[in-house]
Each structure stands twice: as structure tokens, then as C-alpha cells.
Amino acid sequence: MGGARYLLAFAQYYPYGPQYFMFGGAFEVAEIKPDRLDDHGYDLTPLPLHEEYIKRLIVKLERPIGRTPYLRHYVGLQESLTPEVYELAPDVKLGTFPGYQNVRLRHHELQRIIAGDEPSWKDALSSVKGVYVITDLSNGRLYVGSASGEANGLWQRWSGYAHLKNLTGGNRELELIREDLGDSHIVGNFQYSILEIFDPKTRADIILARESFWKNALDSRAHGMNWN
């Protein structure tokens, strides 16, 4: 540890990009004596210092130079790079799962839930298939979709939307919006809610029929983002 007495831990927060890091806590460093070649040379003891910021604070570093941005070692951080406080989340877990009828997630919240494997959300969304609606808050247009065949239900389907290298879940209608307006439009304006849930054993054709019903009820083909 280079003789350091304390360590601040940060982990790369891949949903945002290679230059973003999430705070993982403060630790006291104690060297282990005598040295052993087959073991680590120090112990870390968690400290209460700034523990309220664990998994809430995200810092941004200048974009690294080189072809392997995910594998690098920073030396003299305060001298060579300028950390920027990028985000301080109001709540690590965004609260426990509020019930299927109360889900209303902005894209950055969906990212955090999926990336963090938030237990109550993962358990709830993995336990059901369903019909959902995506709202473009910039114009009120709707996209109705369904999780009808995924093994892990809504969790698996929404995991696609949460990944910054996808964002559209493979939906061609949303992909055209992404190509036209860019990733930032989706991240900044899309909101995700659940319209109807089903037991995991429900046949796909039944769920698809309900998806079609909701497209008609919300008129998302003529005035929304659905094509069929």
C-alpha cells in the first residue's frame, strides 16, 4: 500500500462509462508482519468516515489515455487527474420495491437498480412476466412492450434497456429514435412503468394478446412509438 495509513476505495461504475467511479468506503491500513510471499501484506479495517456516501457518491475522472481504459493504475491521482463529483444519489437502494402498480423509474434509476442487483427489485421483477410502458417525457409519446418469454421476466427484459451500450432492448422503433436523437435523449427522457403482470407460467400468446390490448387502449401505434 506504499506506506499509506488510510485507503479510500472506488470501483469503476461501468453503466456510466470507464471514467466514472463509485465510492466504496474508507479503510484503515495495517501492515502484516512478518512478510509472507503467499499472502497479502496488509489488513483493511472499515471506518465510519463518510460511510453515508458509500454507493451513493460517483466521481468522474478525465478520460484516460490508452487502448485499455478498464485496466489501469493511477499513481499520484491528485497531481495527474482532477476528480469531479459527478453524482450523489439521494438513496442507495431507491427504496425497497414499491409494488408493481407503483413502479415509475427514470432511466438513471433503472440503471442503478439493474447494475446494483437491488435485491427487492430483482426478486419482484424476476418473479413475473408482464406488459410495460415506456414514456418519452419530452413529448408524452408511449411505447408498450412485454416480457413474455424471458426466463427472468421483467428483470431480464429491462436489463437490456438499462445497459448504455444497448438502451433500446433491441426494439427497432426505439433504435430509430436513438439514431435520430442520440443516447442522451433516451437516458434523459425515458420513464418505465408496469401495466400488467402475469405468473411466469403464463403462455406467451396470452401476454402478447394483452400487449396488443394496451397498444389499442393507449393508442400507442397511431400516436406513440409502436409500429405494430
Rank of each mutant, 00 (worst) to 15 (best):
A209C: 12
I113N: 01
P200Y: 04
E84G: 00
R112E: 07
P200D: 02
P98G: 14
L110N: 00
E179W: 03
D38I: 09
K201C: 05
R210C: 06
D39Y: 11
I194K: 01
P98R: 15
K55V: 02
D199M: 07
S148T: 08
Q156G: 11
E51Y: 06
D183N: 10
D183G: 07
P64L: 04
G41N: 13
L218I: 11
Y100W: 07
Y42G: 05
T45E: 12
G3N: 10
R56H: 08
D123P: 01
I58E: 02
A151R: 10
H73E: 05
T168S: 12
E179S: 08
A162N: 06
S80E: 13
R104N: 09
F21A: 02
P90W: 06
I206P: 03
V29C: 14
S146K: 04
S138D: 13
L154E: 01
K215M: 15
G169I: 03
I113M: 08
G17P: 15
E79D: 12
G3Y: 10
P119W: 14
L61W: 06
V144F: 04
N228M: 09
K215E: 10
T82Q: 05
E173T: 14
L195R: 01
E62K: 08
T135Y: 00
R67T: 15
V133C: 09
Y13C: 04
W227M: 12
L167S: 02
S184W: 06
A147W: 00
N171V: 03
M225E: 05
G17S: 14
L47C: 13
Y16W: 15
W214D: 04
A26F: 10
D38W: 10
L94C: 14
L137W: 00
I207F: 06
P46A: 13
L88A: 09
L105Q: 03
W214Q: 08
N189W: 08
L8C: 05
L77H: 07
Y42N: 12
W155Y: 15
F23S: 01
P34N: 01
E109A: 15
D180A: 06
S146A: 15
G25E: 08
P18M: 08
L8P: 00
G160W: 07
M1E: 05
L88Q: 12
R104A: 06
T45D: 09
G76C: 02
E173V: 05
P119T: 15
K122C: 15
E52Y: 13
P90F: 09
G224L: 03
N139K: 04
D136F: 04
D91I: 07
E51N: 13
A222G: 11
Y70R: 12
Q78W: 07
L176K: 14
W121Q: 01
S127T: 06
Y100D: 03
G170N: 06
T96F: 09
T168P: 03
S80H: 15
G99S: 11
W227S: 14
P18V: 14
G41K: 12
L218V: 10
S146V: 04
V128T: 11
H73D: 03
D39H: 13
A4N: 08
H223E: 13
N166P: 01
L218G: 08
T96L: 10
I54A: 05
L110C: 06
G145F: 02
S80W: 11
N189C: 11
R67P: 05
D183M: 04
R72D: 00
K122L: 12
G17V: 15
G145V: 00
N171W: 00
K55A: 10
L7M: 14
T135P: 00
S120N: 14
H223I: 10
Q12P: 01
L174F: 05
